[in-house]
Structures are given as structure tokens and as C-alpha cells.
Simulated scan of single mutants.
Amino acid sequence: MVESEDEAEAACAVVLTPPLSLEGGLAAELRPANLAQRVLSLFLNVRPGSDLSHFQLPATFNLPKSQLQLYGEGVYCAGEDLLGRCARGRDSLERLACVVAWSISTTRPPIFGFAPYNPVLGETHHVSTTSGCGGGLNVLLEQVSHRPPVTALHATDARGEVRLVWCQSPAPRFHGASVEAAVRGARELRLLRHAETYVIGCPGLLIRLFPSPACEWSGDVRVVCAESGLEAQLSYCRTRRSFLGFGGGDARCVRGRIFRSAEPGDTLCEIDGFWDRQVTRRDLATGEVSVLYDAQRAIGDLATPVVQDRKVGWI
């Protein structure tokens, strides 16, 4: 039997799923019934304190994409060119603020009860874009270790101004009423034209099982540039303290400050807002308040990538 050209093309078509975004996207497609009850049933035989790095998750709880793709989408799926803005900053303070804004943009809305597929050792995810930072990005990810699971990423822009290098390993642990997934390792953002390297941390993911199921980013993040001597500290937290998991206000709050590493007590700018709305920066010297990050523009209703070259899968 001879297949037609259309049938052959359909058989090898690249199927892409929507990225995680504020509105619609993948979250709108994944709404099974009794999800909280199904999630709780997974941990009936798991002891508090257990390491979940090798926990076998049933396929019904997996997102239709791997951890590599999820990491990669945080780099190449964005509504505005925040990476390019880092390279265009007029001075070291503005560039650090832009790097902070970009790091916040990689914080995407998690979906309770779902996790990406674990990549196999040696698995890769390669995407080349024709738009965005510096006229396009070339992003390559590889699973370089299975136990513990470690993912490496390398990305460059078309103009040769920005380079991303990072190596990360999630470390989930069960605590009875919650699962905390710390992200070990660091991300490096190198602005080659300015000879600056920014070392960026990552918040942890907190999955609350009791009293009400929820999924939120939490923890402290540092952004450090040794060349400029500037540093930022961010805290992903709730607006109020919770009592036994009850209350606590909004869980998507981001607060922090920018200061000189040599003078940690001398704050240059204060950062405050919500990573799913707006984050502002207040210059303490002038009192000026400006929008540091606008989530609606950066990750609001992101479109599914479109494959332009089906032979190599470029988007």
C-alpha cells in the first residue's frame, strides 16, 4: 500500500502542546474530576520525609511534555523580549533589574496534580526560534544524569550578546501534608558585550495537600553579579503567615531588594508585587516607582509554538 504525500506528512507531524501561561493554555485542557482525591491516594503508603526523586507517577498524572520541554519553554516562550532587554540595559543597575525581571518570568503557573515526564538519560530538547531575543534563540537541553535527575541547558541569541548556561536538579520530598520540591543548582546568564555574568537561583515548588490542595512557588532567590558588585534578593511568599495551612493571604507575592554585595545593609531599590500580575521597583534615592515586571505582557495567554521547518522541527 502506497501512502499519499499528505498521509506521510501527517504521520510524521510534530505535535506541540500549549505552554504554561496565565490564561488558557495547558491548564485549561487538564481539568479531570476528583483530582485532589486522586492525588492524596498516591501518598497513602509514603512516609513523611521520603525522597520522591524516583517516585513512580502513574501516566494519568503526567503533563503531555517532558521536564526538558518545560524548562525550555521558560526560555523561548515569552510574550516580550525580556532577555534582550537585559543586554540593552544602559548601566549595571538597570541590567541587574532586567535580569531580575527575566528570572521572575520563568516562574510559570504550576498545575496542581500534574507533573512532566521524567526525561531518560541522554534525552535532548533542541529549539531554534526566528524571533525574540537578538533576532532569535538557539536552545539546547539534555538530561545529563538519571540518578539524581540533572538537566543541563545552553542557549544563545542570534547576535551573540546573551548566553544562558544552567544545570538543575529537582529534589522533591514528602512532608505528610505537603510535598516540597527544592531546585538544586544555579542558572547563569552571561551578557557578553558587557562582560557580566549573573548567577540566578530558583524558587522551590510547594504542593499543599492539606487542608486545601494548592500548588505555589516559595523560597528565597539570589541574583548576583560579581563584575558589577550588585546583588538582588527575592522572596516568593504569602502576603500573610498561615496557621496550620489555613489563611496566609495571596501565595503569589514577590518581595525583595537590590543592594551592593560589599554593603548589604545599604538598599538601593525595593521590589514588591505579585509574579502573576505586576512587580514594581522603587528607587530609594529618588523615590521613583516603576514597573519592573508585567506578567500579563510576559506570560499572559502564550500561543502554542508553530513548527516552521517540519524536517528539523524548528519553531
Rank of each mutant, 00 (worst) to 15 (best):
E94H: 03
V39G: 05
V39M: 08
L20M: 08
V46P: 15
P19Q: 00
P18Y: 01
N62H: 11
E23S: 13
T17A: 03
A28K: 05
F55R: 07
V39D: 03
L96A: 11
L44M: 13
V75A: 09
N45K: 10
L26K: 06
R95E: 08
S21R: 01
A36C: 06
Y71S: 12
F61S: 12
L22Q: 08
L52V: 08
K65F: 03
W102P: 00
A78Y: 01
L93A: 09
F61C: 11
R95K: 08
N62A: 07
Q56S: 13
S66V: 09
L35C: 04
A59M: 00
E80M: 13
R85Y: 02
Q67T: 11
V99T: 07
N34H: 08
S41Q: 12
L96P: 01
L44K: 15
G25S: 14
V99P: 04
S103R: 10
N62F: 13
A36H: 03
V75M: 09
N34R: 05
P58I: 07
L35R: 02
R88Q: 15
L44Q: 13
Y76F: 14
W102H: 09
F55S: 14
R47G: 14
D81M: 06
P48N: 15
V39A: 07
A36R: 00
L70F: 00
L20Q: 03
R38V: 03
S53D: 13
L82H: 01
F61M: 10
S50C: 12
E23V: 14
L63A: 02
A101C: 02
N62D: 05
A59E: 10
P32D: 11
R85Q: 12
F43D: 04
C77S: 04
Y71H: 11
R88L: 14
D51L: 06
P64E: 10
E94M: 07
V100G: 00
S53G: 15
F61V: 13
V99M: 07
P18R: 01
L44P: 01
A101H: 00
L93M: 04
Y76D: 04
A28V: 08
L70E: 14
P18G: 02
L82Q: 05
L96H: 09
C98K: 02
Q56P: 07
Q37P: 02
L52Q: 06
R88T: 15
L96C: 10
A27F: 02
Q67W: 05
L68S: 01
R90C: 13
S103V: 07
L30N: 02
G79I: 11
S21Y: 06
R88V: 14
L68P: 02
Q56F: 04
A87P: 15
S41M: 09
L68G: 04
